[in-house]
Design a protein around this nucleic acid. Structure first.
Length: 240
DNA sequence: GCGACAG
DNA sequence: ATCTTGTCGC
């Protein structure tokens, strides 16, 4: 699919990156989905220990069947270190490369990390959603910003609130018994309610939705295969 | 100054 | 995030 090209590999001083986040956050639209959801995608990035060579994967599923339709991969050397609050500047260049290899345009993206639950309202899901102009949801395993009451019963969810404004930023969902809640927040072109409902429909008894699990598995298999063969074959991969 | 801190 | 297998507990 067609993706925007970034300049200078997205490397810039943190103050400039923060300014860009505030500008892009103004473009975020949390409105109901514009059409039916027929294809959902899980996206993930992985790297080696203290490594800057990132691997990215996008796994597209048919919805609601939840069968894999296509997987795309890419590798990218990132010059941006991991800094809490600026994760997207490190991972998005690798992700855009993977999306450039993708043929089926997904209806909703599910990203590892935050949506608008971010100090400047631009977690990686919101950032990616705005750049690609696609609905995007953040599914995080731990907290970055915001406060919430711990949901107790499986299936129970509580609102994530902005400590400064009281605004609802997302939801903490007790997706599975004896597991920490997952943090779900809309990123772009979707509502918090729609994001929550879609995630719940993809749990299959696990803590994380199948999109997240599959993207994580795919990107790690890809990274280890690249290391084993010393190659970096990329491109779309059809699936059954 | 101190604590918090997605992946 | 990542290196690694089994093992303990609900």
């Amino acid at each position: 699919m067609h993706v925007p090209q970034l300049e200078d590999d997205y490397v810039m001083p943190l103050a400039q990156a923060a300014a860009l986040q505030r500008r892009l956050a103004e473009q975020v639209l949390l409105q109901p989905l514009a059409g039916p959801v027929r294809h959902v995608a899980g996206v993930d990035v992985s790297s080696e220990w203290h490594g800057s060579l990132l691997s990215a994967a996008v796994v597209v599923f048919r919805y609601p069947e939840l069968t894999v339709l296509e997987t795309a991969y890419a590798v990218h050397e990132s010059a941006f270190p991991y800094v809490p609050g600026f994760l997207s500047f490190r991972e998005i260049p690798a992700l855009l490369k993977a999306f450039a290899q993708l043929r089926q345009v997904p209806d909703v993206l599910f990203v590892d990390g935050q949506g608008i639950t971010h100090p400047r309202r631009l977690g990686i899901a919101a950032h990616l959603g705005v750049l690609l102009d696609l609905p995007a949801v953040g599914v995080a395993k731990s907290n970055l910003y915001g406060r919430w009451q711990t949901p107790q019963r499986p299936g129970e969810h509580t609102p994530i609130l902005d400590p400064k404004t009281g605004e609802t930023l997302g939801a903490a969902l007790k997706s599975k018994a004896r597991s920490l809640p997952i943090l779900i927040s809309a990123g772009h072109l979707i509502t918090h309610q729609e994001a929550l409902t879609l995630v719940q429909s993809m749990l299959q008894g696990y803590r994380l939705p199948i999109t997240t699990r599959a993207a994580h598995d795919a990107v790690n298999a890809y990274r280890r295969e690249c290391k084993r063969t010393g190659t970096a074959t990329e491109g779309p991969e059809a699936a059954t």
